[in-house]
């Protein structure tokens, strides 16, 4: 009896350990990943995704933290989408989107840096509020927005701006001084149907409660995430395999067969 109890205890422990290993293997801490349920993921964003092809006419496409380069086909597709009455929102703080903006004929550019502000409510000088200055449905009903280590945006019509007491912290010491000068800078600008937002961090799980009206406005507009170019995916092979299985009916059937057949075999053997 004692031995049996121990065997059960070990089985339960193995089950718990197995569950922990599975949970560990199927979660990720990658920035912006929709599979990341942590503070820096986008699992709670709740926006639909589109991958490849031309998005529905008149829809708004969100390219969030773009990764990789845009091919001629990608650019033509976006151009067609814009010409068809669609809109594009690009959220980037690394400046990776600048070649795409140039190819689309936009004068807006993202300027990566350590944008900081004296007017802040957190110890981190790069976590501060900006004011809405332009008229856009994206920021309807919003006076200020908390941004999280944003990049400045140059060109176009400014929609979000810092106060005058913002500086590019080139020394990274968190203090203004030396050649660093205070200046009002745009965080978001619009040109035609292209909107460039210098802070993709607005979409991470930890930031959603900070700017609820902004996310509500996005959801109302049925914005679609361009999954092919956004950094919302993952490099985790286990998650990618599971996602592939979920998306492939044949693979789902194969997995179901792999589970059912051994069980059926065992039952049949017992009866004999």
């Amino acid at each position: 009896m004692t031995m049996q109890r121990e065997v059960w205890a070990i089985l339960v422990l193995l089950l718990i350990a197995g569950a922990a290993v599975f949970a560990h293997a199927t979660t990720t801490i990658e920035d912006y990943s929709r599979h990341n349920i942590g503070w820096n993921g986008t699992s709670s964003l709740g926006l639909e995704e589109t991958r490849g092809g031309t998005p529905p006419a008149g829809s708004t496409l969100l390219i969030l933290a773009p990764e990789g380069s845009f091919t001629e086909d990608d650019i033509n597709r976006l151009r067609t989408h814009l010409e068809g009455g669609g809109a594009v929102i690009i959220a980037d703080k690394e400046g990776r989107v600048n070649p795409l903006l140039s190819a689309l004929g936009s004068s807006i550019r993202v300027q990566p840096g350590n944008l900081s502000s004296l007017e802040r409510g957190h110890a981190d000088p790069r976590l501060f509020r900006v004011q809405t200055t332009g008229n856009s449905s994206l920021f309807a009903g919003i006076e200020t927005l908390l941004v999280n280590r944003p990049a400045a945006v140059q060109g176009g019509e400014p929609l979000l701006e810092t106060s005058l007491l913002a500086w590019d912290d080139t020394t990274g010491d968190g203090r203004p001084g030396g050649t660093e000068t205070f200046k009002r800078r745009a965080i978001c600008a619009r040109e035609g149907d292209i909107t460039v937002l210098g802070d993709p961090s607005l979409f991470i799980n930890a930031m959603l409660p900070e700017n609820p009206e902004f996310i509500e406005n996005l959801r109302k507009q049925s914005v679609l995430i361009d999954a092919a170019h956004s950094g919302t995916g993952t490099r985790n092979p286990i998650i990618n395999t599971l996602t592939w299985i979920q998306a492939t009916p044949l693979a789902r059937a194969a997995i179901a067969a792999l589970v059912i057949l051994p069980v059926a075999y065992l039952f049949g053997r017992k009866r004999e």
């Binding site: 920035d31 820096n40 957190h122 110890a123 790069r126 908390l146 999280n148």
Partner: peptide
Amino acid sequence: STAAHADPATIKKRSPGDAASLV
């Protein structure tokens, strides 16, 4: 925090120090 952003819930809050009145 990561290179891209910080978790606002874990960053120490502070008074803006009346910065808005500086200019």
